[in-house]
């Protein structure tokens, strides 16, 4: 257990790192999308467009901050703040390395016994930002975006929770660090099929939870302008963008921690360079990068779901598949191991 001031400094640094990563993720995303669509993407501001995020930040801050006349003012201002606060606080529970590996400090902000539940709870509260923003804007497109978002999140949270259950059952703990230490894939080959199914179901639900393509119905610009974002501009709009990207990063880190050994390095490398899997931060960041790329790749590849398809997929397929994985895991643990 760290003293309070260490925790506070770590929390502050983590927020700065996440927001810096957000700024450069927007650039990376636009560049990758550009490559995939046979165009350049932003490459004028600085070498390779590296100063583009800074230019965007300056623009967002100095843009006129419009508050819609007929908006519910308090809720309208509060909604983006709720979004970003809960997005930033979710990441703190995710461990970045073994205890004491970061210059003698622990590479996490808090080590909770119930880390899995904490991340799920905080991210599920974050959705208030989206649908309060849409409602407070007092515009039909924004309201439609909000309604879509809340229905979507209620539907996909079940799949998300159920697919985590397999991992929790195998690891026998809710502590994220202990889950990494157990290494869910190393327990038994019998558990590989249900784990693989749970992994796929979890990745899909996580994409739905962070409202990314093909689940970006809340801001489908071809149908409802920009959904809940329609009436927002300037720094408030930027806050929503920040929370979307921070949520993506949290989802990527959460998937890596639960299913892919989190902060631990690859086994092969550990044999070549002993101690390499103990290096803090780097392995987690590499694994996150894979999922961030996946999210961007999907955005360039897949068309958006229609609303009824989204609901049918969530309730009739994803939920059942996740349930089957959970039952199978339970059966293997009870009868085989």
């Amino acid at each position: 257990m760290d003293p309070l001031w260490v925790t506070l400094i770590k929390a502050f640094v983590l927020c700065l790192v996440l927001l810096g990563a957000f700024a450069y993720m927007t650039l990376i995303e636009r560049r990758i999308l550009g490559r995939m669509q046979h165009r350049h993407g932003p490459n004028r501001t600085g070498p390779f467009g590296l100063l583009q995020p800074i230019a965007d930040a300056i623009k967002s801050v100095f843009k006129e901050d419009i508050i819609v006349t007929n908006a519910d003012k308090v809720v309208y201002v509060m909604a983006p703040m709720i979004s970003i606060i809960f997005a930033l606080s979710a990441f703190g529970a995710i461990p970045g390395g073994p205890a004491g590996s970061l210059f003698g400090f622990n590479p996490w902000v808090v080590d909770l016994d119930i880390g899995v539940l904490y991340v799920l709870a905080v991210t599920s509260v974050g959705v208030y930002g989206i649908f309060l923003g849409g409602w407070a804007s007092n515009s039909k497109y924004a309201l439609l975006g909000s309604l879509r978002s809340s229905a979507q999140i209620i539907s996909y949270e079940l799949g998300l929770g159920l697919s985590v259950l397999s991992v929790i059952m195998i690891a026998g703990t809710l502590n994220l660090r202990e889950i990494v230490e157990v290494g869910v894939w190393t327990v038994s080959p019998w558990l590989w099929p249900p784990l693989a199914v749970a992994f796929v179901a979890f990745v899909i639900s996580a994409i739905a939870e962070v409202n990314r393509t093909p689940f970006d119905l809340p801001e489908a610009e071809q149908e409802i302008v920009a959904g809940y974002l329609t009436e927002y501009s300037g720094i408030k709009w930027a806050l929503y963008q920040m929370s979307e990207y921070v949520n993506m990063m949290t989802a990527a880190a959460f998937i890596s921690t639960l299913f892919l050994g989190g902060y631990r390095g690859p086994y092969v490398l550990e044999r070549l360079i002993p101690g390499s899997s103990e290096w803090p931060i780097i392995w987690l960041v590499l694994k996150m990068a894979i999922f961030m790329f996946l999210f961007i790749w999907l955005r360039a590849t897949l068309p958006r779901f229609r609303y009824d398809q989204l609901m049918r997929f969530g309730w009739l397929y994803l939920f059942e598949v996740a349930l089957a994985a959970t039952l199978l895991t339970g059966a293997v643990i009870a009868f085989v191991l």
Partner: peptide, 20 residues
């Protein structure tokens, strides 16, 4: 955490959904 997850995260979201 269960309080947040179940009440704030699920039940109240449903409430607000219906109100909206």
């Amino acid at each position: 955490v269960i309080q947040v997850l179940v009440y704030a995260g699920a039940i109240m979201v449903l409430f607000l959904f219906v109100i909206m």
